[in-house]
Structures are given as structure tokens and as C-alpha cells.
Design a protein around this nucleic acid. Sequence first.
DNA 1: CATTTTGTTCATTTTTTCTTGAACAAACAT
DNA 2: ATGTTTGTTCAAGAAAAAATGAACAAAATG
Lengths: 186, 186
Amino acid sequence: MSILLRMIPYSLPSSDFAQEKHSLSSWETAVIDLFLNAATSVGLPKSVGQIYGLLFCRDEPLAMDEIMELLSVSKGSASQGLRSLRQLGAVKSQFLPGQRKEHFVAEIRLRKLVSGFLKEQTEPHLEKGKARLNHLQELVDATEDRNSAERGRKRTNVLASWHRQVGKLLPLVKLIVGKTDRSNKR
Amino acid sequence: MSILLRMIPYSLPSSDFAQEKHSLSSWETAVIDLFLNAATSVGLPKSVGQIYGLLFCRDEPLAMDEIMELLSVSKGSASQGLRSLRQLGAVKSQFLPGQRKEHFVAEIRLRKLVSGFLKEQTEPHLEKGKARLNHLQELVDATEDRNSAERGRKRTNVLASWHRQVGKLLPLVKLIVGKTDRSNKR
DNA sequence: CATTTTGTTCATTTTTTCTTGAACAAACAT
DNA sequence: ATGTTTGTTCAAGAAAAAATGAACAAAATG
């Protein structure tokens, strides 16, 4: 078996000879650009959007060097971008038999994408928010001026209420997107 | 009446003599910093967060020059920041009798803040998304390669489905935040 | 174990975004 | 009208964020 595998050169992939592995079709370019915009609009670097967009277009898993070439991005961007995407749960790496390189595919279930994004990007903020509220409480309790302290108490209460409401909202968002997501069975 | 008003110097406000109009208490600084962080985390400039934070702390409407001084930000930042906040529905200007300058107060109903943010920051993206989907459809229809075209069709469908789902989600978010927002009667 | 392949890290450069302040405009007052 | 107050705009500078690529590490190969 190892002999057999060794006989297949890496540069001549067996079955997908007609596959456009080294160029993007025009609709793919458009999709990549769409994700580029979507990414920056939610505060992610554009390379992250591009990489996801490319993988979203393709059926076959891609290796990092293919991504670099197709998108003309640097090694560093590709590596870091893929790391971010993995953390968000937006790409998975898939092992191809006989291939050394790691290959990547896009997660296309909206529910997974949304919940990954929320978990990575907003839950940490909520956590820090809780800490900040406590700190705030202390500062208010330590204020001399009675009027200011009273005002501070009111505002702290408002913030605490907001915090609770947003905390309740996030699980609901996941739930709702999940409910209507037809593709959430593997 | 004009005589009466002219007799009250601007620099000596009548009732609020003990008010710390020209300095921030420590809890206020903390709140401002909290909003600074919140703002940047949703992609708004930090000055916008600071300005909102300051107004959030105060009961009395503030004029632009007071904001500039308390936060040590430039005229330009103050002006543009207030414009953004107005567009988001996060501050309202309030006219004070006998005062020339425009004064500002913060909107503190979460429902209003969220819906303003969604309307200004995400609805436009959804709109553009619709246009992009149409463009994409054309590109796919124009692709020669049958395999690529077929793949393009599948992906376009996925994107269309996502678009629908997010479209349904946004109104629900507003609704949910509204439902539980105790402060949404004026 | 020397070599090649693959992937990560991080200092530097590039790009993008934000802030500043001076020039301008509009409204008001005298 | 003339000067003053108030607010906006925008070119230039400052700051922040992202991309690059060379140096490094880790793993597999022969």
C-alpha cells in the first residue's frame, strides 16, 4: 500500500483533472467578495472573509498553499485566518488519505456559524461586562457626594438590567436560527 | 422677558451650583470606559462610545462644548460623534429655554438602542445582500462549465436561505428586547 | 540523522480608520 | 450690516489594525 501511494505524484491529482484548482470562476470571485464584505462588517479581517468565501464555494477540501495561491494572500494571513475560522467553528480540517497537508472545508450550517460567532465574539464581552459591573458597583459605593452616588446607583441598575436582557437574548438567537435551519442535520 | 433672561449670566447657572459640571467622578469615568469598549466591540469609533457614556451618566442635558471639555475630545470628534449617535437614535437633542446651544441627552431604553443600531448598521447590509444575490445569480447563469454552474446554483441557494433566515431574525430580536424592556414607556 | 515538507510566529510595512483643528457656514444679536 | 456664537466639514496627521515574509519549529521522509 505504501508503494502504491508513493507512485501517485502529488502534482498530478488522480480524478479531478478538469477541476479549476488554480483559478477562480467569476461567480466564485463574487462570492468571495461577498464574504469579504460580510466579514469586515462584523469586525473580522478581510482575509478571514476571503478564505471562508473560497472554501464555501468549493466541494473539495483545500490545502493552505492552494488557498494562498487562489486568493493571493501571504502565508501569515492564510495561517492566522484559518486559525480564526477554526476557532469560530467556521471551517473544519479534514484529513485526506495519502496527503500530508492539512485540508480545510467550510461549515455551511448557519446555526453553527452563528453560535460559533456568538460564543467567540460576544460571550467573552458579556463575561467581562459582569466583572465591570461589579467594579462599577464598588466605585459607586465609594463616592462621597450623595447626589452623584444616587445617580450612580440608578445607572448601575440600568446597566445590570441591560446585561440581563442581552444575556437572555443570545440563547434565543441560537435557538431561532437553529429552528429554521434546514441543513442542520449532517 | 428678554430682559430677565439677559440678566442671568451663562457662566453662573442658577440652581445646580454644587454640580460637578467640569469634572468626572470616578464611577463616571468607569462607565465612559465601559461604553468606549462596547462601542469599539461593535465597530463604532471610541469617541462615539465615550460621548454616549458621558450622556448616559448625566441627568442634565449637555452642550457640545461641555462634552468636549469633559472628555477632552476635539470639536470635530464631538460634532461627528453626536451626529452618529443621533442617527442611531442613541441621543436626542433637547432645547433648554434661554440657552442658545443645542443640548443632548442619552436614550437609555435598550429597545430603542438596539432597534436603532439594527436599522442603521445591519438593515443596509441586508439590503445590499439582496442586490448581491441577484448579481450572483446572473454570474452563475452565465458560467460555461456545467459542474461549476451546478455548484454555483447550490451555493446561491444556501446564501438565499441564510438571507431569509437572518431577515426573519432581526424583527424577532427587536421584539424580544422590547418585550422585556421595563423602561420602554416614556 | 540529515533533509524536506508543512505550518506558526512575530517584527516590519502597509492599509485603514479615527482624530484633530483650522476654515467655513449659518444663525443670532446688537 | 457687523460682530459673535455655535456647529459642520474636510484635509492632514496620528493611531490602530491587518498583511507580509523571513526566521523558526515540528513532523515526516528517506
